[in-house]
Design a protein around this nucleic acid. Structure first.
Lengths: 172, 172
DNA sequence: TATAATTAAATTGTACTCAATCGAATTTAG
DNA sequence: CTAAATTCGATTGAGTACAATTTAATTATA
């Protein structure tokens, strides 16, 4: 009744995070093992869609000599001009173990500079360079190109956006 | 008017993938550079939420001596008993460069065995072992525990699930 | 004010993730 | 039939992710 490799459920018998949790009074259709089926997971398509979408950036960002992680770090820089590693980490949900090599790579390309804060030597201030500012002009077309290869209705995009930020603990 | 580090938009002036694309007739509020703001992206919260959610699995899966990638590979095995690397790759959206070491690690732990297909020596068949089957009993509690630490309304979870599979090219 | 606690980055080690490439096996075309 | 094209998995190299640890700097406390 279902084509292979294609998810299908009626909303009365699932909850992606855990069927049993939201199945409600009529949870009889679920055996405990059903909770471990790939089709029933919500985390898995979240993880897979994230990777699939980011894959679309690669050819576009290659022209700017940026990886996706470097690109979102530059997004922060284009807005902030100067920011500490810690503050950038909070914005991007990344820790210093990830950001340190990313920022060193961006420094090597000449898009940012790194220096310690005079006020607090523990703090490393990342600052955008002129080349980094100039890169923005080449980057402005990227969002539209990404939009073109992912087909969601505007209200779906809005709803996805809202739910993702709810998961991230920032309800809007 | 807005608290720092918190996204907020009215649906008349955004589209997360690209503001200009969905802003509609009244797109005047957007300058081109607005498209590069982190708050306006849809890919970014997708990427961040994916990592944040998967982080929750780590302590749970540690007890099973599995990583998240190994866990989703085992999910496939619990349903299929035997499958080729290629077919598993299609289910998980992962290629051989990722799966080969993951499956070797699972073989080392004794949860799967690997052998070439007699019909086609190019094909590697992954088969679940008794230990792998037994592991399922320890894993059944994982989905509920994950559900407990992510608070979405059932209909939000359903909608997220649907949209993610739409992005993955499997509309439901 | 010594010292303890805390904080911020960097480092280390493990584990992906993926593009590109390779080599062996199989299929297809001529 | 046989050479070319395709397919499958493994390998390689670059770049993350992230927990845990380390080091240096700052702040709090007895």
């Amino acid at each position: 009744m279902r084509s292979d490799n294609k998810a299908n459920f009626s909303n009365k018998d699932i909850t992606p995070f855990c069927p049993a949790a939201v199945a409600g009074p009529d949870a009889s259709a679920f055996s405990p093992e059903d909770a471990l089926k790939l089709d029933v997971q919500l985390c898995f398509p979240l993880y897979a869609a994230s990777r699939e979408v980011i894959k679309n950036y690669r050819p576009l960002l290659e022209e700017l000599d940026l990886t996706y992680t470097q690109y979102i770090a530059m997004m922060v820089m284009w807005e902030q001009k100067a920011i500490s590693v810690k503050d950038m980490g909070q914005k991007l949900f990344l820790d210093s173990g990830t950001l340190t090599p990313v920022l060193k790579a961006l420094e090597k390309k000449g898009y940012v500079s790194r220096r310690r804060s005079p006020d607090d030597e523990r703090v490393l201030i990342v600052e955008i360079t002129e080349d980094g500012e100039a890169l923005k002009n080449q980057a402005v077309t990227v969002p539209q190109k990404i939009a073109d290869c992912i087909s969601l209705e505007p209200q779906e995009a809005m709803e996805l956006y809202r739910i993702l930020y709810k998961i991230l603990g920032k309800e809007i």
